Computed example of a mutant assay.
Amino acid sequence: MLRKILSYGTVSGLIVGGALSVIVLTLGDQMGHGAIGMLVGYLTMLVGLSLVFVAIKRHRDVDLGGVIRFWPAFGLGLGVSFVASLFYVIAWESALAITGMDFAGTYASAVIERQKAAGVSGEALAKLVADMESFKTHYANPAYRWPMTFAEIFPVGVIVSLISAALLRNRRLLPARRA
């Protein structure tokens, strides 16, 4: 099972990490911090994490004779998601190092500008600016940044694992083909 987790997790991680790297390396500081950027990011995660479903199905059909219980399927999905999430963190860190991008500064400026456009001013704006300065300071620390980056993708993997395990415990769903 560990071999399946590592192999499917690696391929999944290469998909999500590769897509993330391409986006960061081509767009750099121009990355969208709005709804479109988030949509593209999470769709890419779903595409990469679709290998969770494939891993569970293949394990069910090839190794277990077409039947799998929920918890073992969920555990396999979590393992694949964990490995893929590690690749995602490594890809993000690598892209930041290669480009020298100031993600925290760009993000903080975008948040402040969005709030100014919404009419926030005075004391509320001053508090937001202070919060964003604190965010930039914290984000410069890898011990803060790495778990934050991991937390972007791993919950998506948990949801994909839950859905995949729930669906694939039904042996009539996409049954194995007989030779």
Rank of each mutant, 00 (worst) to 15 (best):
A130Q: 15
M132P: 12
G18E: 03
I68P: 00
R69K: 11
V67S: 01
I153M: 01
I68S: 05
Q30R: 13
S161M: 00
A55Q: 02
L43P: 10
R60I: 06
R169I: 08
A140K: 14
P72W: 04
I56R: 02
G48V: 01
I98V: 15
M132V: 11
L162K: 04
K57R: 13
I36L: 15
A84D: 05
A19E: 06
S50F: 08
D29K: 06
S134N: 15
Q115A: 15
G28I: 02
M38N: 13
G13N: 00
P72T: 02
V89G: 06
H33A: 09
S85K: 06
G28K: 03
L128F: 12
Y8H: 07
G105S: 14
I56T: 04
R177Q: 12
L6N: 08
L86G: 02
F82P: 00
R114A: 15
S109A: 15
W92E: 05
A73H: 07
A126Q: 15
H33C: 03
G65A: 08
R3V: 07
A95H: 08
L39I: 15
L25F: 10
Y42D: 07
L2W: 10
I163L: 06
I98H: 12
V156N: 07
L27D: 11
A91Y: 02
A126R: 13
Q115H: 14
P142V: 06
H33Q: 14
L76K: 03
V62F: 07
G32S: 13
W92F: 11
D61N: 12
R171W: 03
M132G: 12
F74D: 04
F154D: 00
G157Q: 00
L173F: 13
V16S: 02
G79S: 05
A124K: 12
L2N: 14
V67M: 06
Y144Q: 09
V16E: 04
R169E: 02
S134K: 15
A166M: 07
A126D: 14
V24S: 02
L78N: 01
V62G: 02
A35E: 14
E113D: 15
W71V: 08
R60N: 07
P175T: 11
I36T: 15
G75T: 06
D29Y: 04
A151L: 12
A35H: 11
L96P: 09
I5P: 03
S50W: 01
A108M: 11
I153P: 03
P147A: 11
V52F: 00
L162Q: 04
F70W: 08
A176L: 02
A19C: 12
F150I: 03
R169W: 06
L125C: 12
E113V: 08
Y107I: 09
V62Y: 04
L25N: 08
A176T: 05
R58C: 00
M132I: 10
G13V: 02
P175R: 10
R114H: 14
A176I: 07
K57Q: 09
L6Y: 09
E152W: 08
S164Q: 01
V22W: 08
E113K: 11
S7P: 05
